[in-house]
Every structure is written in C-alpha cells, then in structure tokens.
Simulated assay, not measured.
Amino acid sequence: MAAAEHVILKDEMAVELPSLPPNQGLEAFKDIIFGSTAGIAGKFIEYPFDTVKVRLQSQPDHLPLRYSGPLDCFRQSFQAEGIRGLYRGISAPLAGAAIENSSLFFSYRIAQEALQATIYSPTEPLPFSALLFCGAASGAFTSLLLTPVELIKCKMQVPASAGQKPPGPLSLIASVFRHSGLFGFWRGQMGTLIRETGGSAAWFGSYEGVSAFFRRHSASPTADGSSPQLPIYQQMLAGAAAGVSYNFLFYPADTIKSRMQTEDVSRLGLESRRPTFFSVGKSIWQQHGLKGLYRGCGITVGRSAPSSAFIFSIYECLRHYFG
C-alpha cells in the first residue's frame, strides 16, 4: 500500500500521513551525478583565480603585504611556479566541488519537497521567500561537508617558504590530525556556515529570481502549463548573477575563514587559547578595516560569474535531457 494511503485511526478520527515523492533514490542519484559534473567543470574554470584570492586573504597582519593586488599576486605566482603552481592543490577542491554542488542541489530539492509536503501545496510553486529558506538550509547542510575539504585546499594554496617542498594533501591531513585532532578539520566552520547559509540563499535566490524574470518577459508557457526551459544564454546570465551575489554579500566571512585555516597548525596546537572566528575578524578590521575583509573580492566576483554560469547551465541541461 502506498504511503499516501496509510491512515491511522485514533479516537475515531482519520489522520492522513504525508506522502514522500516517488523514486527518491533515483532523484538523489541524479542530483549527485549532475551536481558533481557541473561543480567539477566550474572548478577547473575558477581555480587559478581562487588560488590568487586565498593568497591575498592569507597575508599575515604583522608583516608587510607580499602582494599589492590580484594582478601582482598572479604575476609573482606565475613567475615563481608557472601555471602548475596556480593549479596546485586542485585535487581537494575537485572533490570539494563535487561534494558541494551535489549536496547543494540535492538538499535544495529535498527542502522544497519538505515545505510542499508540510506547509505549501505540492501542486503550486513555492513563493520566493520559501526558495530563499530552502537555499539557506541547503547551504547550512553543505557547510558541514565542505569545511574539511576547504581547510586542506587553503593550506595547499598558500606558497611554501623558500627552499621548502610544498606539502601534499596526505601530509597536511596527518599534520592537522596530529596537532588538532578530528575536530581540527572543522576549524573555520563558523565562517563556512555563515558564507554557505547566506551565500546559498543568495545563490539560489538570484538564480530563481533572474530566471523568473526571463520567463515572465520572454518565455512562452508550455502546453502542460509547466515552467519552460530557458535558452542557454538566459540560464548562464541567471547563473552569473547567482555567482556574483553569493560571493560579494558574504565575502568577509570567507576572508576570516581563510585566515583561520591557513595559520600554522603546529603553532596553534601549542597555544592555550586559539583565536576564534570573531577575534580573527576583529584583528583584520583593526589592522586594515573593511578593505581588509574584502581583500581579493574583485577577482573572486569576477571568476564566480562564468563559473556559476557554467554550473547552473550544465546542471539544467543534464536535468533536461536525462532527468
């Protein structure tokens, strides 16, 4: 008997249990495969710019700035290490991109279905405020999976000291565990949580908002009344807007997270009190003001537009043809 047909009789009153959508396992598998594919493609596009961003963010407060800006950082990095240096440490981010995007799309869909099963009608589209909530919920869930991956990624992106061989991911994992234990992999979780919760609400919200605008003004409804498939250029414009919103609005949280994750774990392990998310943010503010919290933001927003455009368009195309 289907779940929707189960009825509990109590005190002569019938209570119908909410039904779950069919084929949840298949839909989850599609979210994982399609989201992972889109995320990996986007990561290859944006990674050199992300390396520059992390190196700008992780410059210590007590030393003169090593880089005067994104172009200077790119120039110095390329001269010292070549293009390979800009892609150093990409193995962890590729895994992170697959995890992040599959988790985001999966949990975003699950959150929508949960709201439609409990609060809203399953036959009506969710209001924009509900979509923002679903985006925030998906980001909060994803942050738990993403923080350990980003911790290793950020440490690999920081340039090694002169004469030293850059550490590999396995040696960094062993070092973090040795000095900070299992919970050391979630150092910077507060920054990731703030960035992903607010950023994912902005990410999905911007995409849904721009897509709805295009549907109202340029797309004709389908014969069955469902939402029409937007042209590829409109999907990419909506995705680009999503990427810009995600990165700009909550960028200071990412700066603080990167600073925390790139500190020397051996030194931190000997301290009686480790700097917290808020103390690191206060230190950056006192040293450099708002400009310090947004250091590297320009290049991050610039690379996020094409990256998110490809992520959404690839995911939507896969969903359209194989969903």
Rank of each mutant, 00 (worst) to 15 (best):
I40T: 07
I40Q: 11
A41T: 08
A41E: 10
G42V: 03
K43L: 05
I45G: 03
I45D: 09
I45L: 13
I45P: 01
E46T: 05
Y47I: 01
Y47H: 06
Y47A: 01
P48R: 07
P48A: 15
F49R: 07
F49A: 14
D50G: 01
D50V: 05
D50L: 01
D50P: 00
T51Y: 08
T51D: 12
T51A: 15
V52E: 15
R55F: 07
L56I: 10
S58H: 09
S58G: 06
S58K: 11
P60F: 12
P60G: 12
D61P: 02
D61K: 14
D61N: 13
H62L: 12
L63R: 14
P64Q: 10
P64T: 02
P64W: 05
P64V: 06
L65C: 04
L65Y: 03
L65H: 01
Y67P: 00
Y67Q: 12
S68V: 05
S68L: 13
S68W: 07
G69F: 01
G69M: 05
G69Q: 07
G69R: 04
P70V: 03
P70N: 02
P70L: 04
L71R: 03
D72G: 05
D72A: 05
D72S: 02
D72I: 00
C73R: 01
R75C: 02
R75W: 04
R75T: 04
Q76G: 06
Q76C: 10
S77W: 11
Q79G: 08
A80L: 12
A80T: 10
A80I: 06
A80K: 14
E81R: 09
E81S: 11
G82P: 00
R84G: 07
R84D: 07
R84S: 06
R84P: 00
R84C: 04
G85Q: 08
G85V: 06
G85D: 09
